[in-house]
């Protein structure tokens, strides 16, 4: 519990303080405190049931904590809905529910934020503007922009995930949360998605990514938080740690060495 103070990241975009969350008798999160450094890619690892997804859902406003404080940009940010979190600049990329397959790429990018023309009350879609702006937006993060007028269901799984991630970054958001962004993808597609994630970082965005794939964590992240059984075990700067150390933190093999929980 105390060990995580040692490697605390300096400039935090988001800060969670003493978050607790129970589902009935099940303790999902216990006294969870962590910081997400601004402008970096931060990993969040832990075994199944460690509480990673619950934490992400609390940050993004899907769940509310039983107690504890979330601070975003130094302001209290206990969101009660994903829309509220999005308004403040926190976007979430969901595993595979993110896109409507029957809609074109541009329509997915603009879903819920459509541009309209003419009399306000009619909400007539400005398809031409959305088409051209989608191209511009995606080019900021993606080298090979998929055909934006085609329905998303015609794209490959990797292209879809690329679109979903680029959409999350396209809206002036500051923090992007990703839960297993490449879980269902092949090697080449994973590479493409990781390139997009680096593209987001280059644009100054902050990213928190959950992954079970430690190779990926070491490729992508600047720092990594480890959780076990609803608690935060510690933070490590990726450049100064080793997969073995992270694994032992995940499994608890290092518990006796000082995690103390």
């Amino acid at each position: 519990m105390t060990e995580n103070r040692v490697g605390d990241p300096p400039d935090a975009l988001l800060r969670a303080e003493a978050i607790n969350k129970n589902f009935g008798a099940v303790v999902a999160l216990q006294d969870v405190s962590l910081q997400i450094p601004r402008g970096e890619i931060t990993g969040l690892v832990g075994d199944n049931g460690a509480g990673k997804s619950t934490l992400i859902k609390i940050i993004s406003g899907v769940l509310t904590p039983d107690s504890g404080v979330i601070e975003f940009e130094r302001k209290a940010a206990n969101f009660t809905s994903p829309a509220e979190a999005r308004e403040q600049g926190i976007e979430t990329v969901y595993q595979d529910l993110a896109l409507a397959g029957n809609l074109a790429v541009w329509a997915n990018v603009y879903l819920g934020r459509e541009l309209t023309v003419g009399p306000k009350i009619l909400h007539i879609l400005d398809k031409r503007a959305m088409l051209s702006k989608t191209g511009e937006m995606l080019e900021r993060f993606i080298r090979n922009v998929p055909p934006i007028a085609e329905p998303v269901e015609l794209l490959s799984g990797g292209q879809r995930q690329v679109v979903a991630i680029a959409r999350a970054g396209a809206w002036g958001s500051k923090l992007i949360l990703m839960d297993e962004p490449t879980a269902a993808l092949g090697v080449a597609e994973t590479k493409a998605v990781e390139d997009v994630i680096f593209g987001l970082k280059r644009q100054g965005l902050t990213i928190l990514v959950i992954s079970h794939n430690l190779d990926q964590i070491f490729r992508l992240t600047d720092g990594v938080w480890v959780m076990r059984r609803g608690r935060v075990i510690g933070y490590r700067q990726t450049a100064r740690t080793h997969p073995d150390e992270i694994v032992s933190m995940i499994t608890g093999a290092a518990a006796s060495a000082g995690a103390g929980a």
């Binding site: 529910l97 896109l99 397959g101 329509a107």
Partner: peptide, 20 residues
């Protein structure tokens, strides 16, 4: 119109539409 667009969106993927 946007309303018609939402009919397609909800018909195609209600969960994603709600998330957005």
């Amino acid at each position: 119109t946007r309303f018609g667009h939402y009919v397609y969106a909800v018909g195609g993927n209600p969960v994603a539409s709600a998330q957005m």
